[in-house]
Every structure is written in structure tokens, then in C-alpha cells.
Amino acid sequence: MRKALTISAVGHAVLILWGLVTFVVKPLEANTTESLPIDVISDSEFTQITAGMKTAKKVETPKPLVEKIGEQKPVEELTKIEKKPAIQTASAEPMPIPEPKKPEPKPEKAKAEPEKQAEPEKAKPAEAPPPDPALEAMKKAEEQKKVEDQKKVEDQKRKAEEQKKKAEEKKKAEEQKRKEEAQRNAFDPGKIAALLDKQSPRREAATGDTINQTASLGLASGRSATLTQSEIDALRAQIQACWNPPAGAVDGRELIVRVRLQLRQDGSLSVDPAVMNRGGHPQFQIAAEAALRAVRRCQPYRLPIAKYDVWKDVEVTFDPRDMFRG
């Protein structure tokens, strides 16, 4: 038995030695590769991609590729608001607004006025103080604006009437068309060729505010900044904490209120929130008020400061069904 045992042990030792000599695997040199996340994206997301080319010139702000000027958000309306609150600077604290200085009598005027002052001084208090040119200019501007506004209102009324007429005419024309089409739509197998789509393959042009045909160097993330779903949810949660949805609005699809928020960097509202949609529901006005109250009450909002450009102007949807769904 001892002999067999030694033979076996020696055999194993030889095998292991042979393995040590021949079974030298090359050390595994695995470079850690960047992970390649795969995402399903929509058209709009695709057009917002700002992943750039390495050869492109460095631009201050990377622009998405744009081939067509697309629709722009109606920003002009807001610029028309006359009662603008204090203009905010980038600093978090509102800068003290310089109060309109009372125009001091300028030395030139002082020279011109002595003629008047030469007249008896008693008359002076009775007379109105000499009209200031700057104030007058402002008043004039205001008057002009008022006149313009009136004109605009009139124009709008006129336009509205014209549109109504046009709409009626259109309706009639459309009805006629529909009748004709109904006759035409009867299936005719002989005309299948006409039904085929003969358009050449095409793609949707990327739209933006300015045409930009050169790829930019791109951002690190490869995406233009957008609020992530969780950030949007965070904002919604902050607002919902203050929101008392109108009672009995369980079935209110028509009570969905979209509110536009414009925020400062510290998360407070820079402009009074505006309701962006109309609803036919009798309680819509109440719902809208409730939404506005919630928005006003819950400021300031805590959002990532790095994406201020994105959330300085956001729309939030108040859906009472969400609220009741819990």
C-alpha cells in the first residue's frame, strides 16, 4: 500500500508541477470600458441631443443642431406686462431699486428761469410748478400707450368679428367638402395605386430658434439640460403640499389647470403665476384659483440651481384626479 501511495503522490506532484509550468494564463488585461446605456427616446428628445463632434470648434454655449426654425413660445405677451415688479439681478437678494429721482433743477434751466423769477414772487405759488420735461415725456408715453392699447382692443374686436364670419364660411365649405369626400371615399379597387404613398423617404427636421448647421463640441452629458422626471416630480410634490384641490372634483377632467411659473434663482416667483388653459367646467375658475394659491403659497421652491435655465420658466399641471388617486 505504501508503494502505491508514494506512486500516487509522486504522480500528483508531477502533474501539478507540469500544470504550474504550462498552465500560465496571460494576465487578464481588461480595460474598464465606459458603459453604454440604451434608452428609448422620442423625436423631441432626439432633436434635443447636443452630443457633439470632437472636431468641432469650441463654442461658448453648445447649440443643438437646427435645420428649421420651429415654433417659439409666446414670450412677447409677457414682455407687455406693464406693471413689472422690480427687475431681478442674478444675485439672490433683490437689488434696491433706485427710486425715481426728482429731477433737480439743472444749471441751464436755472439760467433760463431767472426771467420768470424776475416776475413777482407771489405769483409763483399760484402757478403750477414748472412742468418737468422728463415727467412730461413719461406722461406722453403713457398716453400714447393707452391710445395704442385702445386701438389694439378695437383691432382685436374687429378681427374677432372677421374671424367669426370666416369661421362660419369655412364651416359651410367644410360640410360641402365632407359630403363630396364621403362620395369619393367609396372604395374603388381600381384606384389602389392612387392610395400608395409616393412620398420619398424623409425625416423630421430638427427645429429650434436659430438655424445651426454645424455640430457643436457638445456637453459632457451629451444632452441639453432638461429637468429629469424626478426633478419635475419634486417640484410637483412641493406644490402639492400646499394645494387644496376643489372638493368634489373627482371626475374633473375639465378641471385640469396648467399654470405657468416663472421663478427666480432662489426659487421664489418672479412674476405672478398665470393659468395657461381654459375650461368649460363650472368649477374651473375655482380650481384655477386654488392652483394659483398653491403656487403662491409654496414658494420658494427648491430646485437644482445648475438647471436654472430650464426651470426659470416651467408649466405645472394640476390634475385633481392625481390628487385623489393618491
Binding site: M1, K3, A4, L5, I7, S8, A9, G11, H12
Partner: peptide, 17 residues
């Protein structure tokens, strides 16, 4: 397991002989 293997082969050699 290595010891088992050695033992198995020892027994096998012995039994074979």
C-alpha cells in the same frame, strides 16, 4: 480534494496490482 485524489490513485494502483 487533492488529498482525496492522491488517496484514490494510491488505492487504484494498489488494487490494480
Amino acid at each position: 480534494l487533492l488529498a482525496c485524489s492522491v488517496w484514490v490513485w494510491a488505492i487504484a494502483i494498489e488494487k490494480f496490482l
